[in-house]
Design a protein around this nucleic acid. Structure first.
Lengths: 341, 341
DNA sequence: TTGTAGGCGTTATCAT
DNA sequence: ATGATAACGCCTACAA
């Protein structure tokens, strides 16, 4: 509306965008008029329609937001994403992958938000639906740690290889009797011993791959799945494993939080770490309150993964092709693993 | 463009919106054509321009996202917000209150995103800038736990009264010598004893109010501020307080995470909780890994606060007036407080 | 029940 | 350096 106020119809646009040179005189005039009208820059909605860009990148989680952000890895990921997406002038729109998204009259989300691109975070099955919606809208998409179909760029991690390293580390220390605390196997997040049946029906790639890595070294290691990646869950699962006969001399946890729980369980059982029980984690996050311990763990580049996703988005928006990216973990020896006995 | 495909120009709109009755025949025709063209519903950008609604609510944090989500209260808040905003058909756009938002050519954020409303989370000073931007754009805004100017609806908590309850509880148990672990006082987040000078310069309302509540009961209680709400920070602050002469018999922590750290510090110092040291928290969150302990704490309705913010947004979008809301904490006695000695 | 007309506020292109 | 013009794709009266 700056145009009606003054004399210039679309020169105003230039004043605000700075795409072309403007004489100081008219520039002043436009700005003054804008101020008088209480006009504060172009309407993003209209600009968006015209340019075809909204500056908004959707981030889709499978879980309750609360659950997602409980996981430090996801948080770190978001951080990297934010960072990488900022120079693009974009913001992140939080979306949840709920089944009835478009069903009711209400749900905005994936189907109806003005998205430039989408990042899918997570792994299990229902993700496909979201994928379908996004693809039918023709929106570029990147998947982090999930099994999307072919042709969709992914940001992945060498879970199996990394977990194998931790297992090898334990073996080289002399451990032969090792237990595994696994992340949830599927959307049901059921706790309990990981049987062959359950494993066959598992859908969460991360859990499956890390389990495979551990069993590459210890094929018969008993595993117990947790309902979430948390200290309390780790504690519960470890309690079950420590009750086994013979008792494991080491426990491989599929996340640092689970590992912290394992340590607590050991303490509660009067077992010293690492003298009487070795523990390894996964992620390389900083576990709040674990103070004297430094986990032996696999450090995954969580922030980088986020950044990479953002960079991928940027490239896709620029019309370039993007390939799947595989990130690598770094093994870090802490003070929670040692020789058995 | 389903219109050019078939015969109906804008009847298509009706088919998708369902605002008017359409004969099954044409409905079919439109849908088929849409499918053939790979058209998946109206373009949100255009709809947004026309209706003036984008279905996007901005959430502004002062801190790094990573820091914000480390705080379980903020996460719970986001959860409530998501929930309350969903029926509105809206999503949450994550925004950070960084100083150079509009300066560079890049930054999208507050100034340029297609926002229907904004929720400001946090308290300290810089929030004003964000407020100015939003208000000049004429976007409805709600502030959670922050001191916005008059006329701006807020979602607040009875911090002082609540903290006073915890303090009274300790006093009625017989404690006379009490220490306080405080949240950060200002944006600098400096650790250390809380002097009168520092307190006078403090800007974070939550910390100030809770401190006041504690000192309503124990006027001379020494306080030590932490750099963040975390277990490790609580541990550090408690270490300092426990070194005082005479040693406090109880410590009031301004958050549950800090309280968990205090407990760890006590354990490390060989003090049993609550026999030799009583500890109270604040928030009523579930602290992962604190297992045997149940904090004596003030339960704040974090999710409700988020929901209330969402509801406020909904009402404002409907053109109704919204008042500031004051929420109340509930005192919950756990097993971390008892008589001194 | 369906079609027609106009405009939402920009920006890009082109001519001036 | 500035102005005119034409979409961008939709929605909402209103008319048929």
């Amino acid at each position: 509306m700056a145009r009606s106020a003054n004399v210039s119809p679309s020169t105003a646009s230039v004043v605000f965008s700075g795409k072309t040179a403007v004489s100081e005189a008219t520039r002043r005039r436009v700005l003054d008029a804008a101020a008088a009208l209480g006009y504060s820059g172009p309407d993003p909605r209209a600009a968006s329609l015209r340019t075809g860009r909204s500056g908004i990148v959707g981030v889709v989680f499978e879980e309750h937001l609360r659950a997602a952000f409980l996981d430090p890895v996801k948080t770190a990921l978001m951080d990297g994403l934010t960072e990488a997406v900022a120079p693009l002038g974009a913001g992140l729109l939080l979306l949840r992958d709920d089944r009835d998204a478009g069903a009711e009259g209400g749900g905005a989300s994936l189907g109806t938000a003005p998205l430039d691109a989408v990042v899918l975070v997570g792994c299990s099955g229902r993700l496909r639906e979201s994928l379908d919606i996004v693809q039918s809208r023709g929106i570029p998409v990147v998947v982090i740690e999930g099994d999307a179909g072919p042709g969709i760029p992914q940001i992945r991690l060498d879970n199996r290889e990394a977990q194998r390293q931790a297992a090898s580390h334990l073996r080289s220390l002399g451990h032969e009797n090792v237990g595994i605390v696994a992340l949830p196997l599927d959307a049901d997040r059921e706790r309990g011993p990981v049987t062959d049946d359950r494993l066959a029906a598992a859908t969460v790639a991360v859990s499956i791959e890390r389990l495979a890595g551990a069993r590459d070294v210890f094929p018969d290691a008993p595993a117990h799945s947790a309902a979430a990646s948390s200290i309390d869950e780790g504690l519960g699962a470890a309690r079950a494993l420590l009750a086994l006969q013979p008792r494991p001399t080491a426990i491989i946890a599929q996340s640092d939080l689970l590992a912290a729980g394992v340590i607590r369980a050991a303490e509660a059982a009067g077992l010293r770490v690492p003298e009487e029980l070795s523990v390894t984690g996964f992620d390389g996050i900083q576990v709040d309150g674990l103070a004297p311990y430094e986990l032996t763990t696999l450090v995954q580049p969580a922030v980088e993964k986020g950044r990479a996703a953002g960079a991928a988005v940027a490239r896709m928006l620029a019309g370039e092709e993007v390939e799947t990216l595989l990130f690598t973990c770094v093994f870090r020896a802490g003070n929670t693993s040692g020789p058995p006995r």
